[in-house]
């Protein structure tokens, strides 16, 4: 072929410029295209280092403070042995397991609610999910304890109900925000419904879905502190015993660790988000 911009233009117009009705028009195609950019660094060192560095400083400071502050026997009892470590890992486990179930439930449900057959059910399901989140978490947990008894699984069920909404609504929103012409193009060139979902719709919805997952994770770290009321353990144990025994250092340690965990989880999730977002969707 002879691309327009290679054809010598009549008269004095420079290559790629056209004379239309006495006005010069530049051919869009003829504009020098920028050299193909090399793979830009998706995860900058700032992103990698900043948050962990701050968190480490906070942790070290808290450690120094707690080992030097005067503790009476009650406070010492609350922090005895590896009790802090056990509570930390309980908390992590609670968060991980509840988030796992949230993903297992909310993403497929979100996908199902955007399929033609179930589209009509979407508002109803969103209302139910909304109720799950609008209910105060502590009240929800109390009700579940009455119904299911005390134990970690009760706490996890409560957390899942609480955190399904952001992932579900973001999955639905992510899939619905895809241009209908793209879905049509995909069907039009002969992709099956499954192929369209896995190769086109889900990759395009990834940024929004992951944003929902990130919200759910941070929510779960927070609600996991309430697991203590359902007998689920976690850092909430430290906080409540600090309050009950009026020992400030215990309360502060529990709170600081929760905050650090929430920020750490959020940071990890942001890295995963960057890593999973398709290259073509990144901002230029």
């Amino acid at each position: 072929m002879t691309p327009s911009h290679q054809a010598p233009p009549k008269g004095a117009r420079p290559p790629g410029e056209h004379d239309v009705g006495g006005h010069a028009f530049r051919d869009e195609e003829a504009e020098p295209s920028p050299p193909s950019p090399g793979p830009p660094r998706r995860i900058t060192w700032k992103k990698l280092v900043l948050v962990p560095a701050v968190l480490t400083v906070v942790l070290v400071a808290t450690y120094l403070w707690i080992t030097h502050v005067e503790l009476d026997s009650i406070a010492r009892n609350s922090l005895a042995g590896d009790i802090v470590e056990v509570r930390w890992w309980q908390h992590v486990r609670l968060t991980a397991i509840s988030t796992f179930w949230v993903l297992i439930i909310a993403i497929p449900l979100g996908i199902a609610l955007t399929r033609p057959g179930l589209k009509k059910a979407a508002p109803g399901v969103t209302v139910i999910a909304n109720i799950g989140q609008a209910t105060p978490a502590i009240g929800l947990l109390a009700l579940l304890v009455i119904w299911l008894g005390i134990g970690p699984s009760t706490a996890i069920i409560g957390m899942v109900i609480y955190a399904v909404l952001p992932v579900l609504s973001n999955t639905v929103a992510g899939l619905n925000s895809i241009e209908p012409t793209l879905v049509e193009a995909s069907r039009g060139i002969g992709m099956s419904a499954m192929g369209t979902l896995t190769k086109v719709e889900l990759p395009l919805a990834v940024p929004l879905i992951l944003a929902g997952v990130r919200t759910a994770l941070v929510l779960n770290v927070g609600t996991a502190t309430l697991a203590t009321f359902g007998g689920g353990g976690g850092l909430g144990d430290l906080i409540t015993s600090g309050i009950q025994t009026q020992r400030m250092p215990v309360l502060i340690l529990g709170s600081v660790l929760t905050v650090v965990l929430a920020l750490l989880v959020d940071w990890l999730a942001s890295l995963v988000e960057l890593w999973l977002t398709p290259r073509g969707l990144e901002e230029a």
Binding site: T181, L182, A185, I189, L281
Partner: peptide, 30 residues
Amino acid sequence: PVKLRRKIGYAIQSSGLFPHMTVAENIALV
């Protein structure tokens, strides 16, 4: 219909290219 469409080329307004795939990946689909 899926088999039928693989034998029929389809081009639409504003190209309908998939933004998360490279040019080569888009062309290679069918």
